[in-house]
Each structure stands twice: as C-alpha cells, then as structure tokens.
C-alpha cells in the first residue's frame, strides 16, 4: 500500500498545528516568564513574579470559581440536553425533525446574538421580569441580569444545541427493547431511565461533560454580557490583563496555568474512566 499521500497529508496537518498552535503556545510560555512593562508590553527578563501572583489569593479564587462555574455549566448542559433528547426521541418523526431544525438554527447563532437575546429577555423593561410583573407574579420586577444565574443560562444556551445534536442519533437510535426488558424484569416504567438508560449512556455523558467543561472554560462573551464582575471567569481575567492592562506576561502565565489545570483534570478523568472500563 502506497502511504505517500497519507504521509504528506499527515505531515501537512502536523505542520499547520505547529505553526498556528504550538508556536504561539511556546511564545506564550516564554512570555509568561518575562517581566511586565506598561510601555512595551514586556521586558525580556526572566522572572517567576507572574506565577507567584497566581498563588497570591485573588487569581486562585478566580480559578476555583471558574472551575466550579464551568463544571456546573457543563453538567447542566449535558443533563438538560440528555433529558430533552429522551423526550424528543419519543415524538413522531415529523416533530423530531422540527426540533432538530430548531436546534440547528440555535447552533447557527453567534455567542454575541445569544448573549444579547438573553440580555433583553432578562431585562426589567422588555423581558421576563416585566411579563411576570404584568401577570401579577412579581410586585416589583427588576432586571435579572447581570447575575450568576443569567451567566449560567448563557453558558447552558451555548452548549445545549451542540450537545443535543451529538446525543440525538444515539438516543433516538437506541435499542428500546433493553428498556422493555428491564420492565419485564420488574422495573417500574418511571425508574427505567434511572436504572438502565442513564447507566448505558454514562460513558458518553461523562465524555460530553468533559468536552463541555473545556469548551465553557474558554467562553468569554457570556460572563461579560450576563455575569457580574465577581462572576467573571479566568478567561475574562486573562483577556483583561493581556489586553486591558497590557500585561501580557501575567496574562500568559494565567493562561499557561489554566492550560495545565485543564490538562491535569482531563488526564485524571481519562485515567478514572479507563479504570472504570477495565
């Protein structure tokens, strides 16, 4: 078998990865050890100062907040998408197609448009609070954003359609006789999802949660548009430091640390998953 073409294609892909990812990454790692200089971005002087700042307390808090916020967002996205797909898979083919088209349409929307939509929906003047006020459910309606809840809604909205569309073929095409078998073996219908369907999909759901976790770590617009400054994630902080304060070395150091933390979390998850499978 002639492997010339696959090798050329493989080397090209590897070359593109080196040029557009590994080189900037290496540059970022190098810069993270430079000293900040407000007049010229940085001085090429080796220092641990940027990394020491991370452990100063503030950034450590932001990091922990970022990790649990994105973890919560990822778990919510997967739970909601999974339950929605279980419900949609029970509908007629016509209605399934309708909902898939809706999800595809949602996926086409940019992060900014989704953010603005929720900004309006949660605003005091035009959105849900006003509607609740008009219906008499809320005496003194006020804007629901910026808030942690609003930011979480934004994060969930970003991942929901993607995860739903990944899950749909598997959920719709699952062997339903397994669930029927569970019923004939004494499982009440309302417990079948918990005892059988969920465990069968668990590996997929864990993989999707990890994917969403990594994806949401990098989300920038939603925390800024819908969250309060105290809800902002590390991505916002890194951008703020690198671009707003022109402190590229600190921004780079924070980015490197986030990269390491993410890598470690994924590695632990992978090892745990392998152990579970074995």
């Amino acid at each position: 078998m002639n492997l010339f073409v696959p090798r050329v294609l493989g080397m090209t892909a590897f070359g593109i990865l080196c040029v557009f990812f590994l080189v900037p990454l290496a540059f970022m790692v190098v810069v993270s050890f430079y000293k900040a200089d407000p007049m010229a971005f940085y001085q090429e002087t080796f220092t641990w100062e940027n990394y020491q700042k991370f452990f100063s307390g503030f950034y450590l808090n932001v990091t922990l907040r970022t990790l649990w916020t994105t973890a919560l967002g990822a778990v919510l996205v997967v739970i909601l998408a999974f339950t929605a797909m279980l419900a949609i898979a029970e509908l007629s083919r016509k209605w399934q197609l309708f909902w898939i088209l809706v999800l595809l349409s949602l996926m086409c929307l940019s992060e900014v448009i989704v953010g603005f939509s929720w900004l309006i929906l949660l605003s005091e003047s035009a959105g849900i609070p006003r509607l609740l006020g008009a219906l008499g459910f809320w005496d003194n309606p006020r804007s629901l954003s910026p808030s942690f809840g609003a930011m979480m809604i934004g994060l969930v909205m970003l991942g929901f359609s993607v995860v739903s569309l990944i899950l749909y073929p598997q959920v719709a095409g699952r062997d339903k006789s397994i669930e029927e078998a569970a019923q004939t073996l004494g499982t009440a219908p309302h417990l079948v999802t918990l005892y059988v369907t969920l465990p069968i999909f668990m590996q997929t759901l864990i993989a999707l949660t990890l994917t969403m976790f990594v994806y949401l770590l990098g989300v920038f617009v939603m925390p800024i548009m819908l969250g309060r400054p105290r809800d902002w994630t590390m991505t916002v902080m890194i951008s703020d430091k690198a671009l707003g304060d022109a402190n590229l070395p600190l921004g780079s150091a924070l980015a490197v640390i986030m990269l390491i933390i993410t890598g470690v979390i994924l590695l632990i998850s992978l090892l745990a998953s392998r152990k579970r499978t074995a």
Binding site: S177, A181, P199, I200
Partner: peptide
C-alpha cells in the same frame, strides 16, 4: 427479545 436486549 429478538435483539436479546442484554444490559451492555
């Protein structure tokens, strides 16, 4: 069942 429907 025809597909056996074992719990994988």
């Amino acid at each position: 069942f025809q597909s056996l429907a074992l719990f994988p």
